[in-house]
């Protein structure tokens, strides 16, 4: 490896870590929120069914 190649490789690795990290964190947060919302809507439906009875 040429002496300066370590800096080039490190830059691209840092870029990959930041971009992949951001994408994964955003995607997981969205999926988690969708699941939470589905769960709450289900709870709300069950509650309204109970109150109907």
């Amino acid at each position: 490896m040429a002496p300066n190649e370590i800096y080039i490789v490190s830059s691209y690795v840092a870029g990959a870590i930041v971009l992949i990290g951001l994408a994964v964190a955003s995607w997981r947060a969205k999926k988690q929120d969708e699941n939470d919302l589905r769960e709450l809507e289900k709870q709300l439906r069950e509650l309204s069914d109970k109150s109907d009875i």
């Binding site: 955003s26 995607w27 919302l37």
Partner: peptide, 22 residues
């Protein structure tokens, strides 16, 4: 990513209001 993140924040707002309702 901005679209994903805004969607997430909108969902969280809805979650908060549903939690208050429940």
């Amino acid at each position: 990513l901005l679209m994903w993140r805004i969607q997430s924040l909108i969902l969280r707002k809805r979650i908060r209001s549903l939690r208050m309702q429940i």
